[in-house]
Amino acid sequence: MSFLQFDNVTKYYGNRPALQNVTCGMEPGRITGLLGPNGSGKTTMLKLAAGLLQPTAGRVLIGGAAPGPETKKLTAYLPDRVSLPRNFRASDAVALFADFYADFDAAKAVEMLRSLGVEASQRIASMSKGTQEKTQLCLTMSRGAKLFLLDEPLGGVDPATRDYILSTIIRGYTEDATLVISTHIIGDVERILDDVVFIQNGTVAVADSAEHLRETRGKSVDGIFREVFACL
C-alpha cells in the first residue's frame, strides 16, 4: 500500500497548469526518484505532499490522510533553497527541530554538523551557500520521519559533497520510511533509486522500478530519460 499517494492531482498556478491528472504512489521502504526537466512539476508535487500547496483538483494522501499538521509531524521536507532564518545560529536550528519534531535526533544532527565543520554558534548568514545547504540536509536527515521529501538535494554541488549527500541518504534509509528524491541530474543518483517516476509537462511519463527498466530496456535510467525527453 502506498504511503504517499497522488490521486488524479491537478494543480494550476493561475491559468498555468503545473500538474495534470497525476496519479502515482510511493511505497514505504523504497527510495523513489522523481525525475524530470526543470519546470516539469517535480517541486510542485513535493510541495503538495509537504502541505505547502493545495491541489486544484484531486487528492494527495499521506498514510491515508490529507496533508496537515498531523502528517507534517512525520514528514521531513528538504526544499530546493535555503529556508533557515538568516539570523539563526546552527544551535537555534537544532533546537527548533528538536522542539517541534518528536522524531528528531538532536545528538545525531550535532555530530553530523560537527563533522562538516559547522560550529553551534555559527550564524546561518555567515555560512557559505554550500554549508547552509548541508546544514539543512543534516537537520532533515536527522529526523526519524515516515516520509522524506528531498527536492534537488544534489543541485550544484561538487562530487565529494555529492557522495557525502548520497551516502547520508542511504544511511538514513529505514524500512518504514518512504523516500522521495527529485532531480533533473539522473546519472549521479540513479544507483540509489528503487523506483523512478518520470514527470514531463506535469504528467507522469514513466513509472517503474529502476532495475526493471535496466533489464527490459538494456540502458541506464539516465539513458532512458534522455530518450523519453529527447524532443525537448
Partner: peptide, 11 residues
C-alpha cells in the same frame, strides 16, 4: 524562503 521551513512545521 522562510516559509518553506515554517509551513512544514506541524502547526
Amino acid at each position: 524562503d522562510e516559509g518553506y521551513l515554517m509551513f512544514s512545521l506541524p502547526v
